[in-house]
Computed example of a mutant assay.
Amino acid sequence: MTLGEKLREVRKSKNMTKQELAIALNVPKDRIKLYEIGEENPSEFYLTSFINYFNIPEEDIMSLK
């Protein structure tokens, strides 16, 4: 599983849209799309925000980088 696939899986498991996540993390919706499809790599700040927001183990995400 790629990092983008994991990000999408976690978001969908919480029944959130890209728009809802974008608002929650103060990230443009289009940027989330790019992360999820693997066209852009998320910054450390975004990854940390994502991990904290969803309260998931850091290893689950960082191991996919």
Rank of each mutant, 00 (worst) to 15 (best):
S49D: 09
S49F: 02
T17E: 07
E59Q: 12
M1S: 14
P57T: 01
K29P: 12
S63M: 07
L7F: 07
T17P: 10
L47K: 03
K14L: 09
Y53C: 05
P42M: 02
L7H: 02
S43L: 02
T17W: 05
K18Y: 07
E44R: 10
Y53G: 04
G4R: 00
E40L: 12
K18P: 08
A24K: 06
I61R: 04
N55P: 06
A22Y: 01
N41L: 10
F50H: 01
L21W: 01
D60G: 08
I37G: 09
I51R: 01
K65F: 14
E5K: 13
Y46C: 05
N55A: 10
R8E: 09
P28L: 00
Y35N: 03
E5N: 11
S49K: 13
L21H: 03
M16G: 05
N52K: 14
G38V: 05
K29S: 13
A22S: 15
G38Y: 02
Y46Q: 03
S43E: 12
T17K: 10
L25A: 05
S63N: 14
S43Y: 12
N55I: 06
D30M: 11
K29F: 04
K18L: 11
I61A: 05
S13P: 11
D30R: 12
M16S: 06
M16C: 09
I51F: 03
L47W: 03
E20H: 08
L21K: 02
K65D: 13
Q19M: 13
N41C: 07
I51D: 02
A22G: 15
E9P: 10
M62Y: 14
I32N: 00
I32A: 05
T17V: 04
A24E: 13
L21P: 00
P28Y: 00
